[in-house]
């Protein structure tokens, strides 16, 4: 026991505090990082709110909102094709040959139509795509629209947007939430483009469904699932339904 007189190294008293801090940190820090990542890398945070500046300041709030032009007037193919086409310049000029014919905002439209800069005649207007899906997703507009899924479900209140922005996350988890249980999102096919539709208007609902008000189904979603032959969860959540 010759060593007993040698002084042992003793941690100073304040190190007790550090141990406590490290231990608490080791527990709290991962929780903090996970919470931060969940909130920050969330599709709702990353995807929603993308609002690119368009080459022509077209306002959906004016055209679809104030003037009440139906979505399908311009996006004609939405119920027939997989892709909801942007309209050709001709569609703009249906009205704009007469209305605002000299507006500076419409210069690019006139260029494309052939009544402006002759060098740009016939060239497309370089619109920017707002709601984009990855290229391995084969989304079909016609399939959704004909099944009674409104534009509103994926695009939000476009009729109130001066400049269109992405209103929904459009990530896979978001798609699947509806694919697992589509019934609450359904409405009569001919009300798909009516962004202010409400199931509370019974007379209109009866007209849309071709039924009498007394015979309206109690559970509209379930009724439309059967009427539009919407497949069950098993098919709707199959990989091949959206990916090939």
């Amino acid at each position: 026991m010759s060593d007993s007189n040698k002084p042992h190294f003793v941690f100073p008293k304040w190190t007790n505090k550090i141990v406590k801090v490290i231990l608490i940190g080791a527990v709290l820090l991962p929780i903090y990082v996970v919470l931060l990542l969940y909130y920050g890398a969330n599709a709702r945070t990353l995807n929603v709110g993308y609002e690119p500046v368009q080459p022509v300041p077209f306002s959906h709030a004016l055209h679809a909102g104030t003037l009440g032009i139906n979505c399908e007037y311009c996006h004609t193919d939405v119920a027939r094709a997989a892709f909801a086409a942007l309209p050709p310049t001709q569609t703009c000029m249906n009205c704009h040959t007469a209305i605002a014919p000299k507006s500076r905002k419409l210069q690019l439209v006139r260029d494309s139509y052939g009544t402006g800069n002759p060098k740009l005649a016939g060239m497309p207007i370089p619109w920017k795509k707002v709601n984009a899906l990855p290229d391995y997703v084969y989304f079909n507009h016609a399939a959704h629209v004909n099944a009674g899924i409104s534009c509103l479900v994926c695009h939000g209140h476009v009729n109130e947007m001066t400049r269109v922005y992405q209103a929904r996350p459009l990530n896979m988890a978001w798609c699947l939430a509806c694919h697992r249980n589509p019934a609450p999102y359904l409405r009569p096919r001919n009300e798909v483009t009516n962004l202010s539709w409400t199931p509370k208007n019974k007379t209109r609902l009866a007209r849309d469904l071709g039924l009498s008000v007394a015979k309206l189904p109690k559970n509209l979603g379930k009724y439309l699932m059967a009427r539009y032959h919407i497949p069950g969860k098993k098919i709707l959540t199959d990989c091949e339904t959206c990916h090939r």
Binding site: A41, R44, T45, L46, N47, V48, G49, Y50, E51, P52, V53, P134, D135, Y136, Y165
Partner: peptide, 18 residues
């Protein structure tokens, strides 16, 4: 950032085959 709209495209951390 969540409640602001921005003209810059979303930050794609993992590009995959988007």
């Amino acid at each position: 950032h969540r409640y602001e709209r921005s003209p810059t495209p979303r930050l794609a951390i993992i590009q995959d085959m988007d």
